[in-house]
């Protein structure tokens, strides 16, 4: 039990990532407001970035920048951070695109709620 707890504690970033991922996907799937969905997507993605970065980092490492003095100290794996940079950029563009769509949908429906939209489309009268 204690060993297990130790494992959990030492790998805490992964567990945080899993929790964040769960909350993010719950937001996407259960909230009907489009903004909430968008925020959920962003939470989810940042959770995955967290996992990636945690995999690349090491506890006693330093930033992978060449120093003249302590070049012998271990540095963290720079690859994940480089990749996640791409990931962040992608998520920004997805967000921008989604916001454009939200504006367009609002112009037609006068709401940003997915449920209301489908109600209107199916011809159900507004309350």
């Amino acid at each position: 039990m204690k060993i297990l707890l130790g494992k959990v504690l030492i790998n805490y970033p992964y567990f945080a990532a899993v929790i964040l991922f769960a909350i993010g996907s719950a937001t996407v799937l259960t909230r009907s407001n489009l903004f909430k969905k968008l925020i959920g997507i962003n939470i989810m993605e940042s959770a995955i970035f967290l996992m990636f970065i945690a995999a690349g980092s090491r506890r006693d490492g330093v930033v992978p920048i060449l120093h003249m003095d302590d070049s012998l100290r271990p540095y963290i794996n720079p690859l994940p951070s480089a990749l996640m940079l791409t990931g962040i950029v992608v998520s920004v563009s997805v967000t921008a695109f989604a916001l454009a769509l939200i504006v367009r949908l609002y112009r037609f429906y006068g709401t940003t709620d997915a449920k209301r939209m489908s109600d209107i489309r199916n011809g159900v009268a507004k309350e």
Binding site: I53, S57, V63, I76, V92, L99
Partner: peptide, 28 residues
Amino acid sequence: MNTPDLAITEAAAGIGMTVMMMVVIYRT
């Protein structure tokens, strides 16, 4: 976590996204 490049990007992108969302929410 020793990834300053990512920190800078995240800060910039986060602020950008927040502002964008605020503008859109303001308009909708």
